[in-house]
Design a protein around this nucleic acid. Structure first.
Length: 425
RNA sequence: GGAGAGGUGGCAGAGUGGUUGAAUGCACUGGUCUUGAAAACCAGCAAGGGUUAAUAGCCCUUCGUGGGUUCAAAUCCCACCCUCUCCGCCA
């Protein structure tokens, strides 16, 4: 959520910023509604004050044994008028709230212009795209030949966009997750969290997934629905909902491994083959809580933490700064990390690291006490994949494949694989 | 699932219809004292919103959530949510 004060005072600037995303903010309509709110609120509060002081007079008069009947008549009438005003005010306020919840975050000035993915700019590159002295297979072919990836069996059970991974390959994914968690906790100072995979709507409103992106989520039936988390970001970020933290507690770094569930509505034609885009996938997620003013630096740190994983796995990658049109709804700035996939002969996203600044904390009332003023202020939240395990598995398979279809195991993973060095039939 | 207890400020915890936005303690901030620190003592200290040049005043809202009764609700009534204890069941 954007600061309502900013919306009011600089609606035109906000509109200009959001226009960079291609989002049209009707500042005029907002401001006229806002004016209505102001008038109603002033009137309402004046009447409330009147009601309050009159009610107090009644109490005093009664205590002194005076006749309170005349006073009662006056106050009763006040109450009726007040009820009408209060209703009108709450209507306008909820309309404003709806608009505010629908607005994407303001973009940071450093975000490059552009409309879509093709306008993203490369920030840096690490490693050289793997060149194999034979025709590289993609993970689908590799998995099938090893008889360790089975899409048909999965679709029999659950339909499309699901996978069954078997034997050493399943273990390899588990090894990747273990490696990531160990590095982030042991070397980067994260605390590991185990969190719920089912959450309430409120948690998703806090992170910005609701109310706007309901169609991306899986929801359980029943009177009180749960949503399956699309990312661990949701439960982990909501840990600070309604909290006032001490500044001395910040920054806080949390890491969690969870499965992620996405309906992938609206991506019908994309990545229908293979396990690039699944309804269910494993991910290790990094979350930072920092004080305002430190989040941009923190974004660099968080991104570097995700990069460490790829470096240890010796997987070639590049870091892209997303352009204005490609930055996600709640993010002020995002870096995508793209790993090289020899089977596709291209880089594919394996991590997305975003600075949400106060966008989420404002929605979930996550604050810290400013040490000099003593006043609560919104913290900044960041998150990023550190990294997506399913895609990391693909990347290892394709980059470490041999001509005979077997797959070498990266050195750092061997301890997690019972010292196995190669996966073959 | 059954029975009971409870949800109040950063935390703990009083408060059962009117001067209680809320005692007290802890924490925190400032001061006195001290070479310094601790202790002790004194003072301050909820959040959100409106108005405003203002982080000054003034006003409004908020005691789990939503409704209701009343001139007036933390306090009474109804519904819901959550937590804890005991019993049952269970990975």
């Amino acid at each position: 959520m954007i600061d309502p004060k900013l919306l009011r005072q600089s609606a035109a600037d906000v509109a200009a910023n959001l226009a960079r995303r291609g989002y049209e903010f009707n500042a005029e309509a907002y401001l006229s509604l806002e004016e209505k709110r102001k008038a109603l609120q002033v009137d309402t509060e004046r009447l409330q004050a009147e009601r309050n002081s009159s009610a107090k007079k009644v109490g005093k008069a009664k205590a002194q044994g005076e006749d309170i009947q005349p006073l009662l008549l006056v106050v009763k009438d006040l109450g009726d008028r007040l009820a009408a005003l209060e209703f009108a005010l709450s209507e306008v306020q909820s309309q404003l709230k709806d608009i505010e919840l629908d607005l994407p975050n303001l973009l940071d000035a450093s975000v490059p212009d552009g409309q879509d993915e093709s306008d993203n700019t490369e920030v840096r590159q690490w490693g050289i795209p793997t060149e194999l002295p034979f025709n590289a297979r993609d993970h689908i072919e590799l998995g099938k030949n090893l008889d360790m990836i089975d899409f048909e069996a999965a679709s029999k059970i659950s339909g499309s966009r699901f996978t069954i991974i078997s034997g050493p390959l399943a273990r390899l994914q588990r090894a990747l997750i273990q490696l990531m968690l160990d590095i982030h906790t042991d070397e980067h100072g994260y605390q590991e969290k185990y969190v719920p995979y089912l959450v309430h709507a409120n948690a998703l409103i806090g992170t910005g997934n609701l109310p706007k992106f309901e169609e991306d989520l899986f929801r359980t039936s029943g009177e009180k629905p749960y949503y399956l988390i699309p990312t661990a970001e949701v439960p982990v970020t909501n840990l600070v909902r309604d909290e006032i933290l001490e500044t001395s507690e910040l920054p806080k770094y949390f890491v969690a491994h969870t499965p992620c569930f996405r309906s992938e509505a609206g991506s019908y034609g994309q990545d229908t083959r293979g396990m690039i885009r699944q309804h269910q996938f494993e991910k290790v997620e990094l979350v930072h809580f920092v004080s305002a003013g430190e989040s941009m630096a923190s974004l660099e740190v968080l991104t570097s933490h995700a990069e460490v994983i790829l470096k240890k796995l010796e997987l070639p990658y590049r870091v892209m700064a997303l352009c204005a049109g490609d930055v996600g709804f709640g993010s002020a700035k995002t870096y995508d990390i793209e790993v090289w996939l020899p089977g596709q002969q291209r880089y594919r996203e394996i991590s997305s690291c975003s600075n949400y600044n106060d966008f989420q904390s404002r929605r979930m009332k996550a604050r810290c006490r400013n040490s000099s003023s003593g006043k609560p202020e919104f913290i900044h939240t960041l998150n990023g994949s550190g990294v997506a395990a399913g895609r990391a598995l693909i990347a290892v398979m394709e980059n470490y494949q041999n001509e005979d279809g077997s797959i070498r195991i990266p050195t750092v993973l061997q301890p997690y694989m019972g010292e196995m060095e190669c996966i073959s039939t």
